[in-house]
Design a protein around this nucleic acid. Structure first.
Lengths: 155, 155
DNA sequence: GGAAAAGGTTCGTACTGTTGACTATACATG
DNA sequence: CATGTATAGTCAACAGTACGAACCTTTTCC
């Protein structure tokens, strides 16, 4: 995982095409920021996402895969690696012998708390470069884009 | 690559921690958007980034790695795979027999043009969900964050 | 002239993801 | 109740991506 922000990114900053590069450059910056926090916590970014996705309640694989936007087979591998690390465990689902539910272990709960705190802090640091009055505006617009994108997909 | 926007993302939307999740969810949405365009063009996202990074002039590997924010060894593999696809070629650098320069082939030039157009269109589509007057504001704030992040890293 | 640094590759390793196939189980239908 | 369909999850093969260490060749520095 790159530990530095690249000078160019998806979308061709080198060409200076109007408008486009900011957003993909932003994605790269945000992703690299999260990756750095994950590395500090000895996680991979996907492991961080997985642990966050688990939250307080056991989750079924099918629901987790949907939540994370990945294929079930990919989730099998991701959960295998996290289980091997002792961060989570698989268990049976009452009433459905096909299904498997996944829940955090104590180590996983600790890891995710640290990861969350680190990501919050790192992103606050990223936005600290903006004028104070612009920060909630930026978050609001970001949220609006995400909600709309998710709504479009669910439709 | 997920072809749908996940319900949660890096940063723990499930926990609803104030502010943080929007930005990492945004990164996931943007990355997934670019990945879909890449797939349409039969590229991987990193191949898209690489071709955009090459631009109009041959680039040395050491500069490309820096530009893309990856280790030289990783770039060797990335360039190997793109070269195998006929998208670029390696050549000598006058005056420095250690160095290798990389340049787009005709096929690569065509691929990157289509990729750029597709990404532009897809991102415009993403932002179309925002009120018209908010779009330049969002791009401006995104750009400011990226410029600041890149500046901090270069320092 | 020799040491240090630079440019790039190779190798081993791990993570991530897709696709297709498979097994076991749940559900729907006649 | 038997049978067909659908679902949940895993497995295997494969490919892309990335890092760190080691290596070779060449350039730069003292």
């Amino acid at each position: 995982m790159p530990d530095e922000i690249p000078d160019a990114s998806l979308g061709c900053a080198a060409h200076g095409i109007g408008g486009m590069p900011e957003l993909v450059e932003l994605a790269v910056v945000l992703t690299a920021t999260v990756a750095r926090v994950a590395e500090e916590q000895e996680l991979t970014p996907m492991q961080g996402r997985l642990l966050c996705g688990l939250g307080d309640q056991p989750q079924r694989m099918v629901d987790l895969a949907q939540l994370l936007g990945i294929e079930k087979a990919a989730l099998t591998g991701l959960v295998d690696r996290a289980e091997r690390r002792g961060l989570l465990e698989r268990g049976p689902v009452p009433g459905d012998r096909r299904a498997v539910q996944v829940s955090l272990t104590d180590a996983g709960t600790q890891a995710v708390a640290a990861f969350e705190a680190g990501v919050t802090s790192a992103l606050d640091g990223l936005l600290a470069t903006l004028p104070v009055e612009d920060r909630p505006e930026f978050r609001r617009l970001a949220s609006a884009v995400v909600v709309a994108a998710r709504g479009a997909r669910a439709a």
